[in-house]
């Protein structure tokens, strides 16, 4: 391959990347930049159940175990310095600032994101999206918009649940098992966690991850090549791209929020 071919390939890849961003942007704009309809609310509630409520068991169990592991590892380190009383804030701040939003978003991409891509991809391959078009119903409003809003609302709430359950898991290990005083666990935790710095930033991170993960999942489904191989590829792309985007954005947001 000569130099000219390499430059041409690089240019082609850049054009495809920009076209992809433009196309994904137009899809999202077409879905959400319209006046909400009363008929859309039941669709949103249904998706809230599918995307949010049905992810709760995974989030709950993962949060509990990650909190417990975090507390056990933290205790073993802190006890060496005689500062095991600080286990509460260590668990809470780790979960609120990083693990809560990030792990929830990664789990959400694997559980709900892949399901959204596969569902919309199958709707496309069975011509359900085309049939909506032919019935003079906009698939962006009917299919994409309720799923997008459900994802955006669900993920921050799931991250809060994950964090709360994780802190409780830390309490089980630290207080119930290792015998740290319950009063000092909660009081030091309460004194260390700040509303603006920790909880609001946790919600901001979750909201950004929610938009990105749901957007990628919906776009990959909407643009799928309608055959089994295409759906399989799109589902994988959703999980891989969402995960990478979450991790990259997490660094960026952490630098902005805590980099001073």
């Amino acid at each position: 391959m000569n130099l000219l071919d390499r430059v041409a390939n690089l240019g082609r890849a850049a054009i495809e990347l920009v076209t992809g961003f433009g196309s994904a942007g137009l899809m999202l704009w077409g879905a959400i930049a319209r006046k909400p309809r009363a008929k859309g609310f039941p669709l949103f509630v249904k998706q809230l159940y599918v995307v949010g409520v049905q992810s709760m068991v995974l989030i709950f169990v993962s949060g509990l175990f990650i909190g417990m592991v975090l507390a056990l590892q933290g205790y073993n380190i802190l006890v060496g310095f005689g500062t095991e009383e600080s286990l509460g804030p260590m668990v809470a701040l780790s979960l609120l600032r990083e693990l809560g939003p990030v792990v929830t978003a990664l789990l959400f991409a694997g559980r709900a994101g892949s399901a959204l891509t596969a569902e919309i991809g199958l709707m496309k391959s069975t011509e359900q999206l085309s049939s909506l078009e032919m019935m003079a119903i906009d698939p962006l409003r009917q299919i994409i918009a309720p799923r997008f809003w459900a994802g955006v609302v669900s993920l921050p709430l799931l991250a809060l649940i994950f964090t709360a359950v994780g802190i409780y898991g830390g309490h089980i290990v630290g207080v119930e098992w290792k015998g740290i005083d319950s009063g000092s666990f909660w009081s030091i935790l309460q004194a260390s966690v700040e509303w603006r710095q920790d909880i609001v930033n946790c919600l901001i991170k979750s909201l950004v991850f929610a938009v990105v993960v749901t957007w990628i999942a919906l776009y990959r489904g909407y643009q799928v090549i309608p055959n089994p191989e295409g759906i399989s590829k799109a589902t994988t792309q959703t999980v891989v791209q969402s995960s990478l985007a979450v991790l990259a954005l997490d660094f960026l947001l952490t630098a902005l929020m805590f980099g001073r």
């Binding site: 069975t126 011509e127 359900q128 085309s130 049939s131 032919m134």
Partner: peptide
């Protein structure tokens, strides 16, 4: 209106 080959009923 259009009748699709697959039927395209909403599943």
């Amino acid at each position: 209106s259009m009748l699709f080959q697959s039927g395209a009923l909403f599943t």
